[in-house]
């Protein structure tokens, strides 16, 4: 089991291979559809992002409200494919890892290969379990988006599998006997 903690360097990324089981530790940023739209609009307008994205990890999630006595409600991954339109630009700006569920399109994979980034899959539908791995939550932008606002989270032992590595090996497209790139 590999441990992964941001900020990530290109060497950390290249050490990861499709199928590796990892536990994410420390700071990650939570964003889904609307927050991505806002971030990419800011970049296209020549403005900065609400956080320094270099070496960071984004988790595709829109949590439930926190019940009394808890810091967050159920918080499992959403379908990553909806963020495919936005991911390329963020990867080009230094994003090193994305956490979500389900396959990515070829444009995202090409950007991951070009700039060095990984895509981690976690367990869709395991919202209560994954909420327990989240130790702190802070809203850092777009509070008006409610469950879609941009959050900074501190996580501990957040379980993932490397679904697509920086060489473009893709667990979702793995056919029996397919060759795995290792250069």
């Amino acid at each position: 089991m590999k441990l992964l903690r941001a900020p990530l360097q290109i060497e950390d990324i290249m050490e990861l291979s499709m199928g590796d089981e990892v536990l994410v530790q420390g700071s990650i940023y939570a964003a889904r559809d609307a927050a991505h739209k806002n971030m990419v609009q800011s970049l296209e307008n020549g403005e900065g992002l609400p956080f320094d994205i270099e070496g960071q990890i984004i988790y595709y999630v829109g949590p439930c409200p926190a019940p009394p006595g808890k810091i967050i409600g159920s918080a499992g991954p959403t379908t990553s494919g909806r963020m495919d339109t936005y991911a390329h630009l963020l990867i080009a700006k230094g994003l090193k890892a994305m956490i979500g569920k389900g396959p990515r399109d070829q444009n995202v994979i090409e950007a991951m290969k070009k700039y060095g980034a990984v895509y981690l899959a976690t367990v869709g539908g395991a919202g209560a379990y994954l909420a327990r791995c989240i130790k702190d939550v802070e809203t850092i932008a777009y509070p008006e988006l409610g469950p879609e606002s941009l959050l900074k989270m501190e996580v501990q032992d957040f379980p993932c599998v490397v679904a697509i590595d920086a060489r473009g090996n893709d667990i979702y497209r793995l056919e029996k006997g397919a060759e795995v790139a290792d250069d």
Binding site: G73, S74, G76, T78, V123, G127, A128, P159
Partner: peptide, 23 residues
């Protein structure tokens, strides 16, 4: 590993009175 987490999640949701899934 994922199925084990999914099963643990069903127990945790009831224990903690939390939604099984954020969706």
């Amino acid at each position: 590993r994922f199925l084990k987490i999914i099963l643990e999640n069903t127990e945790l949701a009831v224990q903690e009175n939390m939604a099984l899934c954020q969706d």
